[in-house]
């Protein structure tokens, strides 16, 4: 007997799913912000000439890049209260896990962009008597930013999809909302398909915007 699709489970619970989508977007944006902040600091440490700064940053990056994100979520939610008596809300734990885990990836994106700028650019700036700070801000960073754009967007997309792990902490984001609806309606196929379509819509729209921005950046340099 062929499966009969019935999307009424979705249409009847539209508002639950929409508020879940709102939770996903808030968690994503907050996670990206935290990830960028910590990631920039880590990248600066890794690019520093001092081993005492480079080494811990490298250890942090390798650790969080090479361990499963779900474990990070559990650590911050279940582990912190047990080990340190610090209790985080599901949002706080999810944000900490996402931000710290993505900081490792963002740090590598930033560092990669900066080291990809040719040595000649540094030399040209120094030969003009520019201070290191000014040279970095005016010459290196603008060029690095352009090269970071594509991998940066890629990491952001990964992060948005990783927010679904927060469902494991019962945090109200899109996947958790879907689980709630499924429990009530027993229509997992329809509900999760719609979840996938919602992610697709949001991320595809975002990718179109970022491509347009990149094309505009290239046109501005006459290439």
């Amino acid at each position: 007997m062929p499966y009969v699709w019935d999307f009424s489970a979705v249409t009847r619970n539209w508002t639950v799913l929409l508020s879940g989508l709102g939770g996903t977007i808030v968690l994503s944006l907050a996670g990206i912000a935290v990830g960028i902040l910590i990631g920039a600091g880590l990248a600066a440490m890794r690019l520093s000439g001092l081993r005492v700064l480079r080494w811990p940053a490298t250890a942090w990056i390798e650790f969080f890049r090479n361990t499963p994100p779900l474990v990070h979520f559990f650590w911050f939610f279940y582990g912190l209260p047990m080990a340190f008596g610090i209790t985080l809300s599901s949002f706080g734990a999810a944000l900490a896990a996402l931000g710290i885990q993505s900081s490792a990836f963002f740090a590598e994106v930033f560092r990669g962009g900066i080291v990809s700028v040719e040595r000649g650019q540094w030399e040209a700036g120094r030969a003009l008597g520019m201070s290191r700070a000014r040279l970095f801000r005016r010459i290196i960073l603008p060029q690095a930013a352009r090269r970071m754009a594509a991998p940066f967007v890629e990491r952001c997309f990964e992060l948005v999809k990783t927010t679904t792990l927060a469902a494991a902490l019962a945090h109200h984001e899109l996947l958790y909302a879907a689980m709630v609806v499924v429990t009530e309606t027993y229509r997992p196929l329809e509900v999760y398909t719609v979840v996938a379509l919602l992610f697709l819509t949001v991320l595809f729209a975002a990718s179109q915007v970022s491509e347009w921005l990149e094309a505009r950046g290239r046109a501005m340099q006459g290439r």
Partner: peptide
């Protein structure tokens, strides 16, 4: 001292084999 070198370099110009213009 870095700052002394910056001052020196403002008075000694350099042109490179690879031009090294700022592309942005």
């Amino acid at each position: 001292d870095e700052r002394e070198l910056d001052r020196v370099r403002t008075r000694v110009g350099m042109v490179f084999q690879q031009f090294n213009l700022f592309p942005h």
